[in-house]
């Protein structure tokens, strides 16, 4: 094993890997959108008065938190088409990217739902009562009084969850999507693995840099949003 590593070549790989960046961002944004929408439904279910819906929401969250994303991907990507074929539905037309987006939306929705629930409950009860007392109806009170405060409380957790989701997009390569890591693997394979360590370090640096930017964005957004607002947590 007389292999030596050429660490000076690392920066050179970054532009090539970044060619796959748009796809990674597409996966991130769509998963974020669907994940948040799904989480909103689950949160409504868990906060409502319906006992059955409460149990379903709770069960959904604990199921999604228990299953590794990789297993969920295999289950949906390899297992689901088999079941669907059994009942006569052909799923071969669905793109690999769509599977990944579906899996990441499902797995992230549990974390988002927990975040939404906690932020909603963190807003002081008196706020709702005050809104009612000036004649606001349920949804108006939520939209104008509760939500803006809950959102402010949720920003740090939202930022963290988005960073986690971004890191999870790296699993797209497991079904053959050419995202950032997929591209890196292809580059490593093209050189018969001679530059694999350099390529993976370059990929790691890209993820680190983007996470760093996301964290800074989240911090400054939190500052801008909560500026001038009084914290009304219970």
């Amino acid at each position: 094993m007389g292999h030596t590593y050429d660490f000076a070549s690392i920066p050179g790989y970054i532009p090539k890997i970044m060619q796959a960046f748009p796809l990674t961002i597409e996966i991130l944004l769509l998963s974020l959108l669907f994940g948040l929408a799904l989480a909103a439904l689950v949160t409504i279910g868990s906060l409502g008065r319906n006992k059955v819906l409460n149990a379903v929401s709770k069960g959904y969250i604990s199921f999604m938190r228990g299953i590794p994303t990789l297993v969920l991907i295999f289950l949906l990507y390899l297992g689901l088409p088999q079941i669907m074929q059994g009942i006569g539905v052909d799923m071969s037309g669905i793109s690999k990217t769509a599977y990944i987006i579906a899996c990441l939306s499902l797995s992230s929705s549990a974390n988002f739902a927990e975040m939404m629930r906690a932020s909603y409950l963190a807003v002081d009860k008196g706020q709702r009562e005050a809104a009612y007392s000036v004649g606001m109806k349920g949804f108006t009170a939520f939209r104008r009084i509760i939500f803006p405060q809950a959102f402010g409380i949720a920003i740090p957790a939202l930022g963290n969850n988005i960073i986690m989701l971004f890191k999870e997009t790296s699993l797209a390569f497991t079904v053959g999507v050419i995202d950032i890591l997929g591209k890196a693997r292809a580059m490593s394979a093209a050189s018969y693995g001679t530059n694999r360590l350099e390529v993976y370090i370059a990929t790691g640096l890209i993820f680190w840099a983007i996470c760093f930017i996301l964290e800074k964005l989240s911090k400054s957004f939190e500052k801008a949003y909560t500026k001038g607002r009084k914290k009304a947590t219970s």
Binding site: K167, L181, Y200, I201, A209
Partner: peptide
């Protein structure tokens, strides 16, 4: 660094 890099890439780096 550890918080910014996905687990799978850390595994590859460690492995190679």
């Amino acid at each position: 660094f550890m918080r910014g890099v996905p687990m799978i890439i850390l595994l590859y780096i460690s492995y190679y």
